[in-house]
Computed example of a mutant assay.
Amino acid sequence: MLALLGAPALAAGWFGWRRARNRYYSGSITDHFDGVRFFNPGHPWAQTPVDAMRALALTKRTPWPDRWPSPFSDKPPARVGGAGLRVVAIGHATHLIQAAGVNILTDPVWSDRASPFGFAGPKRVVAPGVAFADLPRIDIVLLSHNHYDHLDLATMSRLAERDDPRVIVPLGNDAILRAHDRAIRAEAYDWADRVALADGITATLTPAYHWSARGVTDRHKALWCAFALDLGPAGKVYFGGDSGFGEGATFRAAGQEHGPFRLAILPIGAYEPRWFMGDHHMNPDDAVKAFALLGAESAVGCHWGVFRLTAEAIDAPAQDLATALATAEIAPERFRALRPGEVWESAGAA
């Protein structure tokens, strides 16, 4: 996150969010929208522009390799039916979820950089776990928010041209997609909206502790979310998108209102320095707590080992997850830190 725009732009973004105009969304005031900006109720933003520049300038960053190839690769089947559930990690927050004859992509990014620029910004250190040409036909895309490591406009245009999928986004993100490519079939929804994806298959947008921005003046002006999926005979899946832990209320509520989940897909990376990133991202210990609050049978960890966004080592999330699971006395096979191309699969309903 810190590497996406640099200190001057981050500082400008903190000030720019106060501008009383929202070019993405216009709607009634709610408990998480003040008429211009979206916010997390009960989760006030703690950082300042000075904090952002301190985090960038003073934090010691553990070196990453230029390349970190995954030992896995995958060529998915055309469809998965019945009670089967198949999830392949493509990289970062991108997953292909196959169940009930429906193919769903989360936060698809096939570009080499998570950045507004092709020549600078976080660069991919591992190839996507599924080549774009090997993707089956995509029916649904779920976008959690508009940061460059989650909303990749180039990939969205490729998907629109090839498969014309429905794209389910939180409020305001549809305007970003349409401004780039009117062929993208974006549908915007609010927290708690339940969207029919296919016969008996739904997605509900749920709160996440995060934020949004594509530039220096649009901070908090498009909504962010997690998704609770009901996949009929294949069970329920939670996709966390990108979130801090806070007090855990969003995960507890999701488990109570939308569970029990067969699988939770939770971010475990981009968490150091903790004093700064705690409001933005969970660390593995937080993710294990979220897993417990969700009441999920199994989980996979994402948002690590692909784009360098913060200060921790490339393999620290997987190592820290193993420690957190041992401390919580949870069997490691229940919560796996997937590398790109690695598959989580179950043939029968939970």
Rank of each mutant, 00 (worst) to 15 (best):
N22W: 04
Y25H: 14
S26C: 05
G172E: 09
G101D: 01
L96I: 04
P332S: 08
D218S: 09
T62S: 14
V237Y: 03
V125D: 00
R158D: 13
A188S: 15
F239L: 06
W304P: 00
V169D: 12
N103C: 06
D315P: 00
R185L: 12
A226N: 11
A299D: 01
S115K: 05
R79A: 08
A11I: 11
E161I: 14
G121C: 03
A114V: 08
A326Q: 12
L153G: 07
R137G: 07
Y25W: 13
G278W: 07
G301Y: 01
S111A: 10
L294K: 02
A9K: 11
A89M: 14
F33P: 03
A175Y: 09
I90K: 01
M156E: 05
A11G: 15
G129R: 08
P284S: 07
A228M: 04
P317G: 02
I201A: 08
L5T: 03
G235A: 00
L5W: 12
V88R: 03
I138R: 04
A234S: 15
P207A: 05
I29D: 01
R61D: 15
L142R: 10
R61S: 13
I29E: 09
H150R: 10
A20E: 14
R54Q: 10
D174N: 13
W191M: 06
L159E: 07
